[in-house]
Amino acid sequence: MGVEYKGSRYRGWQRQRDNVLSVQQTLEEALSKVADSPVVLHCAGRTDSGVHACGQVVHFDTLAARSPKAWTMGANINLPHDISATWAKSMPAHFHARYKAVARRYRYVIYNDQIRPAHLGDQVTWNHRPLDVERMAEAAARLVGTHDFSAFRAGQCQAKSPIKTLHHLRVSRHGKMIVLDVRASAFLHHMVRNIAGVLMTIGAGERPVEWAGEVLASLDRRAGGVTAHPFGLYLVEVEYPAEFELPARFIGPHFLTGFESLAADDPAVIC
């Protein structure tokens, strides 16, 4: 099943022991009503508190026989306004939403203006300092490739290895919005937010472009400065082998789909 959600009200994706509000628990309860039996979900990527998704993929095992439309519409009838099921499909038994994924893609959206926005306040990260996108893009290029990203890894990260491959890290401006678009095989905990923090510092002129590479080479999280806020972060796409034939949707978030320049080098974006 494809899922999108606004993460502002939730303590992240994962169900919590203290029963605080989570996306997983909310979606499991809705799907259990459709199945008329308990449903346990597995997701492609566990997002943090306040982080959003427009391309999350989940799977669950069930004996309930429902059509794809019935799963999707039934879930949405039982879900709150800030979570939506976007598609559903029966899959072969060897499919797994997390372990069969070959790449994940995030977008981090910055609202760059002296005045804080009254709209989209918890869906973008506001930065009042004038940011130089060219400097940010030049610094971003130093992080692309296969590296040890220990300097961009949260202390509580449970990944077995800090070595990850960034396939692309693009920086583009669209009016007041600056978008960081990053695709990798997998990510470390807080990795995108830590990258965003470094790039914004460089964009503000507080550090030289070379600092991005210096932070990377240090292998020390303390060298990288402050972790950026979660508000502007979106899981926008999860990729799988072609054999699974998962439905394709636009690359979000929704309020960016009208920016044709964002889609110029990205045929997967529908405007």
Rank of each mutant, 00 (worst) to 15 (best):
V109L: 09
V109C: 08
D113Q: 12
I115H: 02
R116C: 01
P117Q: 07
A118W: 06
L120Q: 09
D122G: 00
D122P: 00
D122W: 07
Q123R: 13
N127E: 14
H128N: 04
L131T: 12
L131Y: 11
D132G: 00
D132F: 02
M136H: 06
M136F: 09
E138I: 09
A140P: 05
A141H: 10
A141R: 15
A141K: 15
L143V: 09
V144C: 08
G145M: 11
G145N: 07
T146M: 11
T146L: 13
T146N: 09
H147M: 10
F149E: 05
F149M: 08
S150L: 12
S150D: 05
A151V: 13
A151K: 09
R153P: 00
Q156S: 08
C157Y: 04
A159T: 10
K160M: 05
K160H: 05
S161M: 02
I163Y: 02
L169M: 13
G175H: 10
G175Y: 10
G175A: 09
K176R: 14
M177Y: 15
I178D: 05
V179N: 06
V179A: 07
A184V: 13
A186M: 08
A186V: 04
H189D: 01
H190I: 06
M191F: 04
V192S: 05
N194C: 06
M200F: 02
M200H: 02
I202C: 02
G203Y: 06
E206G: 05
R207M: 14
E210H: 06
W211M: 09
A212K: 10
E214S: 08
V215T: 13
V215Y: 09
A217L: 14
A217D: 14
S218G: 03
L219H: 15
D220S: 07
R221D: 01
R221T: 03
